[in-house]
């Protein structure tokens, strides 16, 4: 089976006055239809820029400087802007953390949705409107007929995010990139959105990339997990493997700092120090200044290796189950 999306050695750099920021540096992954990939990392790890690169939405001073992004076998980094527009919002869609990045505050919902339908399908206004209404109903917006005539500010945050999702789903995309769409929402609303997105992956065979810093959300949703740190993927594998037997010390640290993994009232296990600035990365492994296992070997660049089948890591001292 060809992957819906395959990213090979992607490098997206930002050329700022202060220096070159290697926001995404040699990132590779692939995802098949109907699958959910959790792209996990903290602020500044490059997970959102990875998403923007796939969408062709990286603005100057940023550029994709190297690598290939294969959508159904075709490298979309080489597409003209015109061809890319035909794909974007149609076959490849994105949901942003802030729904107001998708919605225009001065246009009614129906105006925006009809425009989105007609941009990629030759249908009449009436047909476009009925597709928009169905999409709103699908994401659980009550009385979608009336709500079509509303403006974005008349919706609550959770409703707005559902409208943004409905727009992303209008053309039943093959690939959906969700960039922390539930981070600002309450747990009950989050659960509603997760259940919608899950249905979509099952019904239409959509490949889903879910970008988040919240391992608890991803645990229940993802098939595969890729963990990013300072512009690199430091670990990949099935959700169960990565969460149960992490290989990279950073993954282990992230899992350890989730409160429910700790005994109540006891100190949380914490990763010492802070995420380094991408402008001043130490040579070698970027995590070594915070890593309990770091030694002289880590001053070299670790290459991806597969110490156990089905699980890849960039580490000289992977945590291979000593207890086993």
């Amino acid at each position: 089976m060809t992957a819906t999306l395959e990213v090979r050695n992607l490098r997206t750099h930002f050329f700022t006055r202060a220096g070159v920021v290697k926001a995404v540096d040699d990132v590779s992954f692939s995802i098949a239809g109907g699958q959910v990939l959790g792209l996990v990392g903290e602020s500044g790890s490059g997970k959102s820029v990875t998403g923007f690169s796939v969408m062709g939405l990286v603005d100057p001073p940023g550029h994709v400087v190297e690598g290939a992004i294969l959508y159904q076998g075709r490298d979309i980094t080489r597409l003209s802007e015109r061809d890319m527009r035909a794909l974007r919002g149609n076959r490849i869609a994105m949901i942003f953390q802030d729904p107001m990045m998708t919605l225009n505050p001065v246009l009614r919902i129906d105006t925006q949705m009809i425009e989105a339908v007609q941009a990629h399908a030759k249908v009449s206004r009436a047909q476009a409107r009925s597709r928009a209404r169905d999409a709103l109903g699908q994401v659980g917006i009550p009385s979608p007929d009336e709500r079509l005539a509303a403006y974005p500010h008349q919706f609550s945050g959770g409703m707005r995010q559902r409208v943004a999702i409905a727009i992303a789903l209008l053309h039943h995309p093959d690939l959906l990139i969700a960039d922390e769409p539930t981070t600002a929402l309450d747990v009950t609303i989050q659960a509603q959105i997760l259940s919608e997105v899950q249905k979509l992956a099952v019904t239409y065979g959509t490949a889903l990339i879910w970008i988040t810093h919240d391992l608890s959300v991803i645990a229940g949703l993802a098939d595969e997990i890729a963990v990013m740190y300072a512009g690199r993927i430091v670990e990949t594998g099935s959700a169960a493997r990565v969460l149960d037997t992490p290989l990279h010390p950073y993954t282990q640290g992230l899992i350890g700092s989730v409160p429910s993994r700790n005994r109540r009232g006891e100190k949380l296990r914490q990763i010492p120090g802070m995420t380094p600035s991408l402008l001043r990365l130490p040579p070698g492994c970027a995590f070594r200044t915070r890593c309990p296992h770091a030694d002289a070997a880590c001053e070299q660049e670790p290459e991806p290796s597969q110490p156990v089948p089905g699980q890849t890591t960039r580490c000289f001292h992977p945590l291979i189950a000593v207890s086993a």
């Binding site: 747990v187 989050q190 919240d214 391992l215 608890s216 959300v217 645990a219 229940g220 949703l221 993802a222 098939d223 959700a239 169960a240 969460l243 899992i255 989730v258 429910s260 993994r261």
Partner: peptide, 8 residues
Amino acid sequence: VPRIEARK
């Protein structure tokens, strides 16, 4: 509540 112990 999402739980890290949860799987798919």
